[in-house]
């Protein structure tokens, strides 16, 4: 039976039968996989704790007929414990893994994997505010998946410059000529925040006021919900 080994981050787990779980992993080189972890719900399980959501593990998997089976798991990064210590961090991380699950629907990439691991690590170390880490992750994960919002040019006609309207449905900023009647206006500070988050410029992002940060979060969550079609169930529970 073919066996392969990869490192992956656990996105979600579902109960299966008496004591098993189906684990959804975003791996570095095999994309997103669903594999069965046998007996992990028993208290004497050897690797149950290593296959909880937000954990990064080195896994050995053998190919099954319908689902693959995890035979070994070694922990590479246990971010779960630090993340669940704080409720806002937990809800932010839940949205991140749900987003990763959706954007890698057809195929995953090493970049998506590294971005998610980086974001979870940053959350667990409490490097930045959870909602800011989440916003930056959402923008960058969507960009990698091909839904990058246009920030410094018009999404419709391509005219360069900072424009005054942001329309989620049309993919970003719009110039005066292209903006539909009644389009939501956006102030220069929020545009700067979006740009900073997309580039990962934390100093610039963190310098903004609470009002701007909250406006940015609103736009980013609407943008993510719209482009991921079925929306994110965990988004409404985010504690900001």
């Amino acid at each position: 039976m073919p066996v392969y080994r990869d490192e992956g981050v656990v996105l979600r787990t579902q109960k299966l039968g008496e004591a098993d779980r189906i684990v959804t992993l975003l791996t570095r080189s095999h994309g997103k996989i669903r594999a069965v972890a046998k007996g992990v719900r028993r208290t004497a399980s050897k690797f149950g704790a290593r296959l909880e959501p937000f954990m990064v593990a080195d896994v050995q998997i053998y190919e099954g007929r319908s689902l693959d089976i995890i035979s070994q798991a070694e922990s590479l990064g246990s971010y779960g414990a630090n993340i669940v210590d704080d409720y806002p961090r937990y809800t932010a991380a839940s949205v991140m893994v749900e987003t990763a699950d959706k954007v890698t629907e057809s195929e995953g990439s090493p970049q998506q994997y590294l971005l998610l691991v980086g974001a979870l690590r940053s959350l667990s170390r409490n490097e930045h505010a959870p909602s800011l880490t989440l916003d930056s992750y959402l923008l960058r994960a969507l960009s990698m998946a091909g839904w990058a919002p246009s920030i410094d040019f018009c999404a419709k006609c391509g005219t360069e410059g900072i424009h005054g309207s942001f329309v989620v449905q049309l993919g970003g900023m719009l110039c005066e000529k292209c903006a539909p009647v009644g389009a939501a206006r956006i102030d220069a500070a929020t545009v700067d925040l979006l740009d900073a988050l997309l580039r990962g410029d934390w100093d610039r992002a963190e310098a903004h006021t609470a009002v701007t940060l909250s406006r940015g979060s609103g736009i980013i969550s609407a943008y993510a919900q719209y482009h991921l079609e079925r929306g994110l169930r965990s988004m409404e529970h985010v504690a900001r």
């Binding site: 979600r12 959501p53 839940s94 749900e98 965990s234 529970h237």
Partner: peptide, 9 residues
Amino acid sequence: AISPIDGIG
């Protein structure tokens, strides 16, 4: 239990 990913808050 609280599980935002399953819509349980």
